[in-house]
Design a protein around this nucleic acid. Structure first.
Lengths: 342, 342
DNA sequence: CTGAAAGCGCTTACAG
DNA sequence: CTGAAAGCGCTTACAG
């Protein structure tokens, strides 16, 4: 006999298909005794349900929405593309992916956007947003109405999200730190650090990890206070150029946030590629080119495809009341050099 | 109306379900005219078939076998575990995974093993083996009998495999080379290279990439002729210890093959961790520990889970006559330091 | 609290 | 060359 099916369970337990189904899906209206018989049959026969057949019968569609901040950064663009791409493949799996963009620091706009989603009858939400009370409350609200929620890229540890999909940013900062130190091979000097904003949680964490490693392992290096680039190329370029003019003996530059284009622009203009070790984040098309051109030495990155697939896997598991396989959902901190450019 | 189904196509084309199905699956016995009507309907309605429903109806089981060399290396062990693990999840997708192990340099044993597989009615094969005429012929033979074949980890470019699942080993060697050079930060000295065998194709490629980078970019370094460790810890330790005794000013060690344990053993015994930059391959449990202990500076690795999943995805696509999404099947060359240990 | 029957989207003999 | 009917493993009203 092949794999046991509901029919086998029904026969073994001496009940009908409908009852087996009720037990399987933990729906009410089954006497404890009967349920027990079904459970024994399941155990005895080693039954494991065919999810695809179940979804087919159920006509079930999972509707998930990705909430991203508005913005034109290459990372966001790549993320949006990854969502669209995954969406195509997932149609066959009966999951529909939507993306909505909410203004970054406009709570009203955000609330409105999320409420619209709720009305649309969404099953799950992956949200990438700064940590604010408004977002925290919205997440609580969503969870209450039975919507699964994961945070994406930046965590909201104080919110009741089901899971965080993204990298460990302290470890990412440490990784940047050790590469910076080792690539500099004992040279003495100062290291500049650029972040989007000194308030953003992920920036704080990366900076923390970076400094910890430099302080522990590389006494020859001195890290300077964070410069703020605010996700903008121009602004990033300006603050860096300024700092370069005011400080001598800069040997390294760690760009912990977006705005890599601003960084490479200055490096190229001032011909610093050979003299300064530059480490950035996120393998955007721009960063790829910069690696090839030698304007960037290392890129620390997370695979946007993995982010999206992990988020949908987790949301689906939550919707089905299944546990996730934690090891499979851990997002890697990838190190990319010109040599191992994928 | 929701997504179009076979019923919609049948109605639109004015034919029966059976005919739609014949066209969909390119089975013979349909007049060109009729087929054309069906195709128009498909295009017009934007039909895309529900693979899961199809598989359900078909009762189809994909049977794939992984052919691995016998051996106790941690990498092989991890690979076998990854296969077993993937197998569990894939049962629900109607694919059954088997692993067979064939003796490394015993053509008769290998032929026997593969023939047994063929008799079992396998649909696809993922094979990891040294490049030999016997293997090449077996692959040709398999392909002839309609079995999909991918090579795994080590390619067989001269065989008629459908696809290669593994990393670009030249690029991997280059990656090791640039990390070696940069971590040494301008120090002068000699770099030892250990391989499994100077004949194995992947070893040749890694060595090639490694030397190319060192020669191009790091004139301060001199690479020594390859030592052979033959996948064995003891032997690796011996050849390394010997070389260390005979050569002075060794500043780096690149272990391009297995036998990392032999390497770290010598490094630990002789207290060289601080003085020599050591780069190995494959993130086995042993390598993890060595990274943590500082006995290994860098591990270049490929994710065994990805290897297995990619292999099964490709085999499935080939069985279904579908194209693969190349970008999704590219196996990354991962760089692991203590800091970004997953 | 329980069951018989129809149906999800596709495929497979079988009959014509 | 084409079609009507049954079935894959599950779920869903509906009836009792």
């Amino acid at each position: 006999m092949g794999k046991p099916t509901v029919h086998d369970i029904a026969e073994e337990a001496g009940v009908s298909l409908a009852t087996v189904d009720r037990v399987l899906n933990e729906r009410p209206g089954v006497r404890t005794m009967t349920a027990q018989r079904v459970h024994s049959a399941i155990d005895k026969l080693g039954y494991v349900r065919d999810v695809h057949a179940a979804n087919l019968a159920r006509g079930r569609q999972y509707r998930f929405a990705f909430v991203l901040p508005e913005g034109q950064s290459q990372f966001l663009k790549a993320l949006r593309e990854a969502i669209d791409e995954a969406g195509v493949g997932l149609r066959l799996e009966r999951v529909a992916l939507d993306t909505i963009e909410v203004p970054l620091n406009d709570s009203v706009g955000m609330i409105r956007g999320l409420e619209a989603l709720q009305d649309q009858g969404i099953d799950g939400l992956a949200i990438m947003a700064n940590e604010t009370p408004v977002v925290r409350d919205m997440i609580a609200h969503m969870k209450e109405s039975g919507i699964a929620v994961v945070t994406l890229v930046t965590d909201q540890p104080n919110a009741e999200r089901d899971h965080f999909v993204g990298i460990d940013n302290v470890a990412a900062g440490r990784t940047a730190g050790v590469l910076m130190g080792r690539f500099l091979g004992g040279r003495y000097g100062r290291v500049m650090v650029v972040v989007n904003s000194t308030h953003a949680r992920d920036m704080v964490q990366r900076r923390l990890g970076f400094d910890a490693v430099i302080n522990e392992q590389f006494p020859n290096l001195h890290t300077l206070p964070s410069l703020e680039g605010h996700d903008e190329q121009e602004r990033t370029a300006t603050v860096i150029a300024q700092a370069l003019a005011n400080q001598d003996n800069i040997v390294g530059l760690y760009c912990a946030g977006a705005g890599t284009r601003g960084v490479t622009q200055v490096i190229a203009e001032q011909g610093l590629a050979e003299r300064i070790v530059v480490i950035g984040h996120e393998l955007t098309i721009h960063a790829r080119q910069a690696l090839k051109d030698g304007l960037l030495d290392v890129v620390i990155t997370q695979n946007v495809g993995h982010l999206v697939r992990s988020a949908t896997r987790v949301l689906r598991a939550k919707c089905d009341g299944r546990d996730i396989i934690a090891s499979q959902e851990r997002i890697r901190i990838e190190i990319v050099l010109r040599e191992n450019l994928p």
